[in-house]
């Protein structure tokens, strides 16, 4: 089973990794971790006025940071999954939902896993726009991991370090 895990650079990514580790810890899987760097249009306009060099540098830095971040997550995930299962890492540029969908198709994903914070208490919706776009347009199965996700059968002592890790 091929799983594409879309990683955002917020606190939810640990919840997503823990979810994948928990659900697929006994199943043969090829996991690909993907982070999408979205070039900021404001930066683009500003830097195109004063030359391309700086813009390029900023993006390069963001890509490097994302790669380093994904590699830490990869190590974490590999330690929790079957040792023989590969975990790939990929950082791409573009509009997040487009890139995620294209990447899933190219990778031949059976499942896309994506986290969602939702919009808080004011809205009924517990899903964000990128997740919703992926959900609506994907050709494969999609799992939305919610920020509220807590594994029910874990006891309280197991939950504590998890939330502590999320805060760190």
């Amino acid at each position: 089973m091929k799983i594409l895990v879309a990683i955002d650079d917020d606190s939810l990514c640990q919840t997503v990794i823990d979810f994948v580790a928990k659900v697929f810890s006994h199943h043969a899987t090829i996991v690909k971790l993907l982070h999408v760097v979205q070039p900021s249009s404001v930066v683009d306009t500003a830097t195109s006025l004063c030359g391309h060099g700086e813009n390029h540098q900023i993006l390069e830095e963001r890509i490097q940071q994302a790669s380093a971040f994904l590699n830490t997550l990869r190590k974490d995930l590999r330690s929790k999954m079957l040792p023989s299962e590969p975990v790939e890492v990929s950082v791409l540029m573009g509009t997040p939902h487009r890139v995620i969908l294209d990447c899933a198709e190219e990778f031949g994903a059976d499942l896309i896993v994506i986290g969602s914070h939702g919009h808080g208490e004011l809205s009924r919706l517990k899903i964000n726009s990128v997740s919703y776009a992926v959900l609506s347009h994907a050709d494969c199965a999609v799992t939305i991991v919610k920020a509220q996700q807590v594994f029910q059968n874990e006891d309280a002592s197991e939950k504590l370090p998890k939330s502590a890790r999320l805060l760190a």
């Binding site: 009924r124 919706l125 899903i127 999609v142 799992t143 939305i144 996700q149």
Partner: peptide, 16 residues
């Protein structure tokens, strides 16, 4: 499917 995905508190898998 879409209402469950957007309103449930736990994770939701949508199978096609």
């Amino acid at each position: 499917a879409s209402e469950v995905a957007s309103q449930a508190d736990c994770s939701v898998e949508i199978v096609r």
